[in-house]
Structure formats: C-alpha cells, structure tokens
Design a protein around this nucleic acid. Structure first.
Length: 123
DNA sequence: CTTTTGACTGAGT
DNA sequence: AACTCAGCCAAAA
C-alpha cells in the first residue's frame, strides 16, 4: 500500500451515499489528472469493499464483514462518462449498478447521470 | 532491470 | 461508435 493509494482511499471514503465520483476527479484531487489509471488500480486492490451491500446486490462471492469505518465505497466511482467500471471486482457491473441503485442512484444502461449524482468533492 | 498490462482520460481518426 | 496514442503509477512477467 503506497501513500498515493492511501490518499486515493481517503478521498473515495468521502464520497457520500447517493453520489458518484469519476476516476479523473479523484486523480485531479491527487494533483495529477493522469493518475486516473492508478485510481482504477487502487480500486481493484480495494482492501475494504462494501461487501454487505454487494451481497444485497447479488454478489455471491466472499462476503467477509469489515469494520464499517474503514470501508471504501469503490462502487461509487465511475468513469468520465458515468459508466460502471468494466471489471468491477465484486461480481461485475451488474452488482455495481444494483449497489448504486440501492443507495438511491438511478442507473440506466449501466450509466449514471453525472449531472445529478456527480459529487463536487468540495463539500 | 526492462516490458507489458491495467476498475482511466482526452483528443484525434 | 470503435480504434489509436500518449501520459501517469504500480504490479506482474
């Protein structure tokens, strides 16, 4: 776990329920817009995913419970167009889409309305 | 150590 | 809409 990845998780953890954020915005918050790819890799290695929510969304894999305070809402991170991550690690875009809908985000054709749900990141 | 690949993005073809 | 290229960092080969 590098400092950069740690910062990424800190930012992602601040995304409120019912909102989404793009890889690019997180990368921008880190200083380099081009870090979007690293952000994606960090999500892939997410140590504390929302397994309970994933299970509720139909995820059949490992649903070990973690400490709520450290959970990283990686499902709230989408690409610049509002699409789900291609290889979402908890069952694919099907699960991610459902996880977002459970939190109140309307997902249409595996896309979200960034105009409505994009987190401004400024509070 | 070097090269390739990856939950990315924007611009160009 | 699909493909290519360059750019960043990290992990794997």
């Amino acid at each position: 776990m590098t400092d950069l990845e740690l910062k990424i998780y800190e930012i992602v953890k601040r995304i409120p329920e019912g909102k989404v954020c793009t890889y690019g915005q997180i990368a921008c918050a880190l200083g380099n817009k081009n870090l979007s790819r690293v952000v994606g890799n960090a999500m892939h290695k997410n140590p504390y995913p929302f397994v309970a929510l994933a299970a509720k969304a139909g995820y059949k894999g490992d649903c070990t419970c973690y400490d709520i305070t450290d959970l990283v809402p990686c499902h709230r991170v989408v690409d610049s167009k509002g699409h789900m991550g291609k290889n979402f690690g908890l069952g694919g875009i099907f699960v991610q889409a459902k996880m977002l809908e459970i939190e109140g985000v309307v997902v249409c054709d595996y896309k979200v309305d960034l105009g409505k749900y994009l987190w401004s990141m400024k509070g």
